Amino acid sequence: MLFQVTTTNSVGLAYYGTSISTTFRRDLAAIYVRLMGEIGKYIEDGGNLLIENGWMEEPPRMIDHDQLAKDGKM
């Protein structure tokens, strides 16, 4: 559930970035920038919780072909 909330907030942050690039009103852009800072801190807290609890998946890595050849697995 925490991953879903963090991901949804990240998408919302991207929408604020899109809104800034398409609005002509400076007052709205200032509000969006302020909100982006606050949401960014919230997302960071969620990411730290995911890391601390070991819930974040390991990123993809290159295959070690030498180790595969030694193990005989294919």
Rank of each mutant, 00 (worst) to 15 (best):
Y42I: 02
S10P: 09
K73C: 01
L50P: 08
Y42N: 10
R34T: 15
I63R: 11
A69S: 01
T8S: 11
Y15T: 11
D66K: 13
W55C: 11
M74C: 09
Y15C: 14
K73E: 12
E58N: 13
V11F: 14
A69N: 11
S21I: 06
K73I: 12
E58T: 14
A30L: 15
L28E: 09
P59D: 02
D64H: 00
R26M: 09
G17Y: 01
L35V: 11
A69K: 15
G40S: 07
S21K: 11
H65K: 14
N53E: 07
K73H: 05
T18N: 15
E38I: 01
A14R: 15
L50T: 10
P59C: 02
W55F: 05
D71L: 04
T23M: 00
E52K: 07
G47E: 08
L50Q: 11
V11T: 10
S10I: 05
N53D: 13
G17H: 03
Q4M: 08
S21N: 11
E38F: 00
P60A: 06
S19A: 14
Y16N: 08
M36L: 07
R26C: 04
N48P: 07
D71E: 03
M36N: 03
I63K: 04
L2R: 10
E38H: 11
G46Q: 03
K41T: 11
R25E: 10
M56D: 13
Q4A: 10
L28V: 13
E38M: 01
I63M: 08
T18Y: 15
